[in-house]
Design a binder for these strands. Sequence first.
DNA 1: ATGCAGTCCTGTAAGC
DNA 2: TGCTTACAGGACTGCA
Length: 284
Amino acid sequence: MPELPEVETVVRTLRPQLCGRTIAGVRLVGKALRRPWDPAWERHLCRRQITELRRRGKWIIIGLSGDATLVVHLGMTGRLYVVPRRAALEPHTHLVFPLVRGEQELRFRDVRRFGSVGVFTQPELMHFLGEQRLGPEPFELSTAQLFKSLQGTSRNLKAVLLDQSVVAGVGNIYADESLFEARLNPRQLGRATSREEACRLRRSIVKVLTRAIEHNGSTIISFYYGDGESGSYQNEFRVYGRKGEPCRRCKTAIQGIRLAGRATCFCPRCQPTCDVRERQAPSG
DNA sequence: ATGCAGTCCTGTAAGC
DNA sequence: TGCTTACAGGACTGCA
């Protein structure tokens, strides 16, 4: 389940392989994706040079000469990688972009087809990745911004962290890991969160994501980048996927619940349920 | 406007 | 052993 660190790893791997290269065309194979490929997009890609590769939240943005941008979301099982053209076509390959010279091609595979690929013009991209939809990058999120988002909602902390318009790029794994790092209970209501707690949460998100990027992300079931390499941050998990196992800090059994429609793990001792409901107004 | 539940998709694993 | 069922989850839609 690629989240920000995994997507960042893919982008860092692809950047030297793709920047400056020219796309020769596009080949559709296999079943349609969530966002169907529009044949009109092809003219935006053909003979265009790849000028930049960057990440925004969990989105991969491939800038092209001209006015177009290729935008890719890996969903849960998506993979984007460069291989020699002669390499056998792997199952669940949906799109192939042959590259000019070098006998290589860029391929998109996605077993569960939760991912998406699209081509956007500059104004379309601005709209697509606009602040309405996609909030600040975690590394640019201020405590004041996060505190404001928390204060205005009756949702719990887990649901808020998964909301891409609050902070872009955090998914289920790093939401749980960040909440553990901040010693905050995932059930705590946003509006019951103090400024000091928001500050701690912001710092924890940055710390967890930074470390995960250093480990090239987490490989649980299906995340690989480059030539089938795997990340190693799964070995650093404190709570995610550790239901019933002892907390690495206090040995208490990690608890597993369902929150915001997602499996959620936390340590009941390190992340106490201080006040899940409403923070008491200071009585004076 | 806000928040929640349902939907998509398929491989894996647990249960009978 | 073989079948059925539950589960994983990011983004989106629709409903209350």
